[in-house]
Simulated scan of single mutants.
Amino acid sequence: MRLVHHPILCNYYVTYRCNAKCGFCDIWERPSPYVTYEQVEQNLKSLKKLGVKVIDFTGGEPLLHRDIDRFVHLAKELGFITTLTTNTLLYPKYAEKLKGNVDMLHFSLDTADQAKHDEMRGVACYDHVMQSIQIAQSLDERPDILMTVFEENIGDIETLYQQVCLPNNLVLILNPAFDYNEVETGQQLSPKSLDILKKWGKKKNIYINGGFLKLRKEGGNQTTNPICKAASTTIVISPENELILPCYHLGQQSFPIEGKLEEIYQSQEAQKLIALEGRLPECQGCTINCYMQPSFAVNVNKYFWSALPSTLKYNRMKGTWKALL
């Protein structure tokens, strides 16, 4: 049973540029412009009319955009829930300007081992995360620690949790790594590792979406009976100010927005692509977290019920549940 029939999330790529070189991501290799304030303002107003609730300002590294503080401020003024993930290299520069305008601020940190984290990210950023935690707390901000989990670092959850998250009363988000297109992230998480993540999800200040774990154990999205609702739940806007369908990671087609986001999204051509969500050959076995999370939220099925406890737990911890009503 479908609960929501309109998009609820916008993944807004303000730039593909990044000042890190993570081995599990290829976005930093792509040339990219920066979105303009005028484009963001116009598109946010259209997104509001389309029913979107959450704006995820993403990249690349979103803090590379000199107007990122203006974007999150505008989104909050318009009543959106805002999210932003950063490697923190530039957070000290923007911390004061971002204060109070990012509901879900995520600091990427994959282990409490400085050398290992810096190697995984391709740049020395561990010390910046530690510094950024202190700066954020001095501003009464409460960032989350976002850990991308692989087979090679799943054993590091304990020290990261005990040494960084609990002492600072921060939520630890466990984000299982996924492959996409030609980007391989190494050995996929084993059933044993998925069970380990499930156990961690029961602990205080830890979030792991139970639907992610169930989907992976069952082989990912199945094109014959797709769970993925990426295109109908999530609007993806590129730095070129284009609507990308059915999702960023497949990017089958891009539509120049030119001030007509609502019209383009509702057009017959776009709706035909939206109808193919989860059914394309490339969709078989997909487990991409950023599309599955909203997919689980709009359809009452076994994944909805698997995701619900962890989703409620996180929104209770962050105080954002009322804004979702």
Rank of each mutant, 00 (worst) to 15 (best):
Ser306Gly: 01
Asn181Lys: 14
Ile81Pro: 04
Leu44Gln: 08
Gly220Asn: 04
Glu61Asp: 14
Gln253Leu: 03
Tyr13Pro: 05
Ala124Met: 11
His249Thr: 06
Asp69Thr: 09
Arg66Val: 13
Gly220Tyr: 03
Leu105Asn: 07
Thr185Asp: 10
Gly60Val: 05
Glu96Lys: 02
Glu61Val: 11
Trp28Ser: 08
Asp118Gln: 11
Cys228Ser: 09
Pro143Val: 06
Arg216Lys: 13
Thr233Trp: 06
Gly201Leu: 02
Thr148Asn: 15
Leu308Pro: 07
Gly319Ser: 05
Ile227Ala: 08
Thr159Cys: 09
Gln222Val: 01
Lys45Trp: 12
Leu64His: 04
Tyr16Ser: 07
Asp56Glu: 12
Pro33Trp: 08
Leu64Asp: 03
Leu197Cys: 05
Ile8Asp: 09
Leu90Val: 03
Ile157Tyr: 12
Gln42Pro: 08
Val164Thr: 04
Cys228Arg: 06
Leu324Ile: 12
Asn209Arg: 09
Val149Ile: 13
Ala230Arg: 01
Gly59Trp: 05
Asp156Leu: 12
Asn168Lys: 09
Ile27Tyr: 13
Tyr161Asp: 07
Ile257Leu: 11
Leu146Ser: 14
Leu312Arg: 11
Val149Phe: 00
Met317Cys: 05
Arg70Phe: 02
Gly285Gln: 08
Phe178Cys: 01
Tyr91Asn: 09
Tyr12Leu: 06
Glu242Leu: 07
Gly210Asp: 04
Pro143Asp: 06
Thr58Glu: 14
Gly259Phe: 11
Ile206Trp: 13
Trp200Thr: 02
Asn153Val: 00
Leu213Ser: 05
Met130Tyr: 10
Leu250Pro: 03
Pro33Ile: 01
Leu44Ser: 01
Ile235Ala: 11
Val14His: 04
Tyr12Ala: 01
Phe80Leu: 08
Phe212Tyr: 14
Glu240Asn: 12
Phe296Leu: 08
Arg70Cys: 07
Ser138Leu: 11
Ala115Gln: 14
Thr15Pro: 00
Val300Met: 13
Ser108Asp: 01
Leu273Glu: 10
Ala112Phe: 15
Glu96Ile: 07
Val123Pro: 06
Cys286Gly: 02
Gln163Val: 06
Tyr34His: 11
Gly319Asn: 11
Lys198Cys: 03
Ala20Met: 14
Leu170Lys: 09
Pro176Gly: 04
Ala75Phe: 03
Pro143Ile: 09
